[in-house]
Nucleic acid binder design. Structure first.
Lengths: 201, 201
DNA sequence: CCATCCATGTAACGGGTTACATGATTCG
DNA sequence: CGAATCATGTAACCCGTTACATGGATGG
């Protein structure tokens, strides 16, 4: 039950239409939550029916017309409650780890190429995050100045609480990418060194 | 499309019944893939219909009777192909990161308690993995002797390829837990230090 | 007018989750 | 027998994914 809250958060940061939301989910929001435009439209409909959001007045709501939404008090209350609620971390479920385990049984033929491909993808993602950090958070860890959504740029005051939280989220994303880069490097060392063979037991 | 391959891997390691599989998915397999018994039964049915697995001869297949499965050549081929195929890493989608981002908008009231709770859970999980490592992989990183599934214990030979791969997977799980422990510690430092306030913009 | 975007949807499908149902076995 | 337990299975729901449909605006 996280998508509606992701949308509420995004709409509180800035009222948007469905497609604008979809684009934001492909950019800044994308590094901790992803969603397609179909999911977003479906959820916008539910949120509107449940009174959490409202469509801003438009000339005439028709099929191809842009529709902007804003969050209502009920929506903000819902989000506030969710932030402080309880929700256990989900167990890991990673296809690549599963393939690794399967390779222990049927052999590692063809795996190293795939590991190299993933390594390159994660290195790329890490570099992208580093760019975002340099642009939005002054790169010095623990310090921030200026964000995408626009507070405080130019006067260089101390970072706000909100800035520090957003930076923290970005750093989690970077930490995760670094973890996979390191792990894949080690995995390549172990699988490329020895020849592939069907099982060992 | 990973669950069927998880089941094929588990069945190759040891032919099992549905519930036995479910129990294994709650134990050793659980640190990289999880599944409930309902998922498993549904998938066992599909795999049997598609000729990847076969039910071992039983006195009389009835509703409450145990049914053991083994992998057929087609199933092994399917798994082998999947291991070497292409599958992009999925973008991160973490509810806790999302809540953190939402807290940047609506305030961090009640969040630190939840962060502490998650921290304790991840510390616990890491400790459990460490126990498994000590028991199955002789604890020295890069070296292994003996596994859950039973090869080579007592003679202390070099670890097999399969052992090294399984250890690698376990280490990924441990690395992930350590990442969250570290990140949550840092997050607590930042959110507990300053008082919670609704936004900063 | 036609092609091309932009924007909002519908429909269908599969996986994951939860709750429940039913048949066998065991043990007091 | 009756209760608990093991074991297999059904049903319903929601989320995420893919493909497709429709309407409006823009430019050649």
């Amino acid at each position: 039950m996280s998508l509606p809250h992701a949308i509420l958060t995004a709409l509180l940061e800035r009222p948007s239409s469905g497609l604008e939301l979809a684009r934001r989910f492909d950019r800044s929001i994308g590094y901790f939550w992803s969603a397609t435009h179909q999911q977003i439209y479906r959820e916008l409909g539910r949120l509107e029916r449940s009174g959490c959001i409202r469509a801003l007045a438009s000339e005439r709501p028709a099929r191809g017309r842009k529709k902007e939404y804003e969050v209502l008090p009920a929506g903000r209350a819902e989000l506030t409650g969710w932030v402080s609620g309880r929700e256990d971390p989900k167990p890991v479920r990673d296809p690549l780890l599963l393939r690794m385990r399967a390779a222990a049984v049927v052999g590692t033929d063809g795996l190293p190429d795939e590991l190299r491909r993933h390594l390159a993808l994660h290195e790329r993602q890490l570099a992208d995050y580093a760019d975002i950090e340099a642009r939005d958070f002054s790169a010095r860890p623990g310090t921030a100045a200026g964000t995408t959504t626009g507070p405080a740029a130019g006067t260089t005051p101390g970072p706000t609480e909100a800035d520090r939280l957003r930076h923290l989220v970005l750093r989690a994303g970077m930490d995760l990418e670094r973890l996979w880069v390191d792990w894949l490097t080690e995995a390549l060392r172990e699988t490329s060194a020895a020849p592939a063979g069907p099982d060992g037991a």
